[in-house]
Design a protein around this nucleic acid. Structure first.
Lengths: 121, 121
DNA sequence: CAGCATCCTGTGCGATACTG
DNA sequence: CAGTATCGCACAGGATGCTG
């Protein structure tokens, strides 16, 4: 994806690269789910995100780690334990998408009913 | 994509469905390009969005029309003329992604250099 | 428990040629 | 000019079974 610079117009260059990650089917759901729980483990995520497959979850987790959005902490125990949390950047992302959520709720003439506390402010 | 409702947490239900469109490779670039020019024609878009193929452009245009993000106006002339503009909803989308753009510019310790006027406010 | 390896399907998307 | 039709590839992502 090639993005241009224009001083008098909006450019999307900052999104270059990150859109491929953020736009993926489970990316934001994953970020949100972890954010809602502070910390989550692999099998928890597998259950909470109904429908995601192990392989897909694993690859998304890696990708989001690489983008410094989530943090992986492994404990040397038996059985093994791994906790996923949002990084500072990940928490900021969660905030940054709120306008987009608000936009999405206004569809045509009707408004999608949603109980999200953050959308009511 | 299945999204849950939780009253005390952030939910992504509003994004259900729309993410599949917005997250696509050319979607935001297309919205932005049209927004920057007020109005654009098919072949203009083909040139401005360097690298997009005719078929991809055509399918994206259709999808964005269906989502009420862009508007297609055909003139009965020879040769044929078709103008694409942003709908009200499309213009709002363009504004709604600015926080996301700002977020994306802050990558780790360095800041992406970008000349976008809207990002400097 | 937390994944990885493997296989398989759907589809996003590019290239090119053609049409009303 | 504004697309459509056809082909082909790459990859997202599901299902299942295996491993440290």
């Amino acid at each position: 994806m090639t993005l241009n610079h224009h001083s008098n117009t909006v450019c999307l260059c900052p999104l270059d690269g990150i859109i491929e990650t953020i736009g993926k089917k489970w990316a934001l759901l994953l970020v949100n789910e972890i954010g809602n729980h502070d910390s989550l483990r692999y099998n928890n995520l597998l259950k909470e995100l109904k429908g995601i497959s192990p392989s897909t979850l694993a690859s998304m987790l890696k990708e989001l780690q690489k983008e410094d959005i989530i943090f992986r902490e492994a404990f040397n125990e038996i059985p093994p334990r791994v906790e996923y949390t949002l990084t500072k950047r990940g928490k900021e992302l969660r905030i940054a998408i709120i306008p987009l959520l608000k936009w999405a709720t206004k569809k045509g003439n009707f408004k999608i009913h949603c109980n999200c506390s953050l959308l009511k402010k």
